[in-house]
Write a protein that binds this DNA or RNA. Structure first.
Length: 651
RNA sequence: GGUGAUAUGGCUCAGUAGGUAGAGCACGUCCUUGGUAAGGACGAGGCCAUGGGUUCAAAUCCCAUUAUCACCUCCA
């Protein structure tokens, strides 16, 4: 037997190098550094790969010790919580078949097939108490590398004969197979994990939902149990409180409470009705965006909301999205469809006259109402609806102009987001096609190569910090998607700018270049502020219903202190309205404190109070929703104050 | 589209082991009221989402439909 006494060099996070015995585990290295570090160490990152603490180091490497402070550390922590949950589930329901159970941003889930057993919310409590037992037992979590046959035997041994074996089969032969064991429970898992079940301190099972095996619609629907896990109970409580707070900002709840919109069973799914207040905000947004576009050399179009299917056949939309379109007619000779997008209408406006290279770029904009027959399960508040109004537009330009036009389109977007106060809430996503799934796209690899390279060059030139996403492109071209999270942390696209090298060809659009040759223009599909309903939803959540004054549907409420001043409030409201300020009055015979409370619940920016004293001195007592009493001022002074705020769109 | 939950006055919810409904807030009238989170009295308002079924009897049980919510899938 050869005893190796070799030492290896390990480079740490701070670039210092320490020497340790070959085959030391990461935990041992951590102990060498300090006992304190070893205590909070959850895993290691060796040469960039996240590995278990018990991994032994056999050669020189870079090592980062992952602790509870690191994102990766908490992933390991939560992943361990997942296994504890799975173990508890198998104790209570030995027939359950486990599928997959990863950690997520705040928690974890496990997809499980319970067969004919119908699990309910009440069962979660039972699972939780079983988890407490497992944590109390403080099982050691051990890891072993095994062959497929060994893994199969061990999994079958604990009754896992279905999904685990399917997953096992999917593992390529050149990859090692690891099993993690805690007590009687074994799981097929690449890890890493904590070393003892007792390390999980605070957790809660939060949700019970369905999910397809492997995320594939054609696979079986499994039961997904969600949980959250933290190191300290206080952190768990904090998280739960945060969720409660988020609920209060939920645009669906607030939007109804504030009377912005409602839904009616017999109108139908995904078809919200905007009341006076909701409509007012939409109007403010639309006017603002259209004005801004005009300033930036866009020209407006106004096109039909319905067209023959022939129009959509040219682009390929008809073949691809027919099921998602509201179609009228019963056969191909009389089919009409309500428009699901504006693109081809604006193309035909372009085509209605011949164009020289001197005309380009042409920037078409339209506040465009669209309808898409979304699947019934897809609708969500104002975020995903069947009829929506998009700040749509298409820029027709030469290939030399793409970069400048893209930059300008993005400038507009950034300006609008800045003004709304959303700029810091967004992230950029470069959405590319998926070469492995060309059935979703126009099959022209060189076109895709061109378009994506071109877009990448622009994004890099503009120093945009984006993440790439394969498979999220439009079927005709790559996109820059501007992503935003809702109050629960769910991400959606709010705005998109797309590069299209394909549809100009399909619609036979051309311009005459300087050399007299007919050429294809490039099209940039872009939205300036996205779809107004969705943007409104995000604004409701951002401001918890307390819109900036310029957006607030009611900007001022004028209150009479007693019935004697009721007539004066009426006159003041008229005066404010004549200045374009949205004002209402509250003359009810209620105590003033009561009226103020009402106005605050309605999140109205300003309250004016008129009493005998104010009447005599010709002033109004002003309150705002944030600071309370602002003292008295003349109506003229107040008008100037609020008009400055509105004009400058102060947040 | 799939899985699950839910559906009672404008809103938030209670309710009956099946015998045709209740609260708070909001709303209306009158009285009261000079000041920053709830003054008083009275009143109106629901055939308990829709359509079937079981039953002597259904808002309550069952089925279907519609809508809402969550998740999965999808998103031009």
């Amino acid at each position: 037997m050869v005893v190796t006494m070799h030492k290896i060099n390990v480079e740490l996070k701070d670039n210092s190098i320490i020497q340790v015995k070959k085959d030391s585990t990461i935990l041992e290295v951590a102990q060498t550094i300090s006992a304190g570090l070893a205590k909070v160490a959850y895993a290691g990152i060796v040469d960039g790969i996240l590995v278990d603490l018990r991994t032994s180091l056999d050669k020189d490497c870079k090592l980062e010790i992952v602790t509870n402070k690191d994102k990766e550390g908490m992933l390991v922590f939560r992943h361990t919580a997942t296994h504890i949950m799975a173990q508890a589930v198998l104790r209570l329901y030995p027939f359950a078949q486990l599928a997959t159970g990863p950690a997520t941003e705040n928690g974890y889930f496990y997809d499980i097939d319970f067969g004919d057993f119908k699990i309910t919310q009440d069962d979660l409590v039972k699972i939780e108490s079983e988890m407490h037992k497992i944590i109390k037992s403080d099982f050691e979590i051990s890891v072993e590398t095994v062959t497929k046959a060994q893994a199969k035997a061990k999994l079958q041994n604990i009754g896992q004969t279905k999904y685990k074996l399917l997953l096992l089969n999917d593992i390529p032969d050149n990859k090692s197979i690891t099993l993690f064991t805690q007590g009687e429970f074994v799981d097929l898992c690449s890890g890493p994990h904590l070393s003892h079940t007792g390390q999980i301190k605070a957790f809660k099972l939060t949700q019970l939902t369905g999910a397809y095996f492997k995320g594939n619609q054609s696979q079986k629907m499994l039961t997904r149990i969600y949980g959250v896990a933290f190191e300290k109970n206080s952190q768990l409580q904090e998280h739960l409180t945060k969720l409660e707070e988020a609920k209060k900002r939920d645009h669906i709840k607030l939007g109804r409470e504030l009377g912005l919109f409602t839904t009616v069973d017999c109108v139908g799914q995904g078809l919200p009705l905007f009341g006076p207040k909701g409509a007012k905000i939409l109007q403010t947004l639309i006017r603002w965006v259209e004005d801004e576009e005009t300033k930036r050399d866009y020209v407006l179009t106004r096109t039909p909301i319905i067209a023959k299917n022939d129009l959509y056949k040219i682009s390929g939309h008809w073949d691809k999205y027919r099921d998602g379109m509201f179609v009228i007619g019963d056969n191909d000779s009389n089919y009409m469809a309500i428009r699901p997008m504006t693109c081809p209408f604006q193309y035909f406006i372009y085509k209605s006259t011949p164009h020289s290279y001197r005309d380009l770029p042409i920037r078409y904009a339209e506040t465009s109402t669209l309808m898409r027959n979304e699947d019934s399960g897809e609708m969500h508040g104002l975020i995903r609806i069947r009829q929506f109004t998009l700040s749509d537009g298409h820029i027709v330009c030469t290939s030399d102009q793409i970069e400048e036009e893209f930059k300008k389109a993005l400038d507009l977007v950034n300006y609008l987001l800045d003004t709304l106060g959303l700029r810091n809430d967004i992230t950029y996503r470069f959405s590319k096609h998926d070469p492995a799934n060309m059935s979703k796209y126009i099959d022209n690899p060189s076109m895709w190569g061109n378009a994506e390279n071109s877009l990448k060059t622009i994004l890099d030139l503009l120093k945009i910090d984006y993440v790439e996403s394969i498979g999220d492109a439009a079927f005709y071209g790559p996109k820059l998607d501007i992503q935003i999270k809702n109050v629960y942390g769910k991400e959606d696209t709010i705005i998109t700018i797309q590069l299209d090298f394909a549809l100009a060809d399909r619609y036979n659009m051309e311009y005459t270049d300087a050399d007299g040759a007919k050429k294809r223009p490039v099209i940039i599909h872009r939205s300036s502020i996205g779809c107004y309903e969705r943007t409104l939803a995000l604004l409701i959540e951002k401001y918890a219903g307390a819109f900036p004054t310029w957006l607030a549907p009611i900007q001022v409420v004028v209150m009479s202190l007693t019935d004697r001043t009721a007539l004066d409030t009426d006159n003041i409201v008229k005066q404010l309205k004549s200045k374009g300020i949205s004002a209402i009055q509250d003359n009810r015979s209620e105590k003033i404190g009561y009226k103020i409370r009402e106005a605050q619940l309605q999140k109205i920016p300003y309250m004016l109070i008129v009493g005998d004293k104010e009447k005599t001195e010709n002033v109004v007592a002003v309150r705002d929703r944030k600071n309370g009493d602002l003292g008295t001022m003349s109506l003229y002074e107040f008008e100037n104050k609020i008009l400055v705020e509105i004009e400058n769109k102060i947040l």
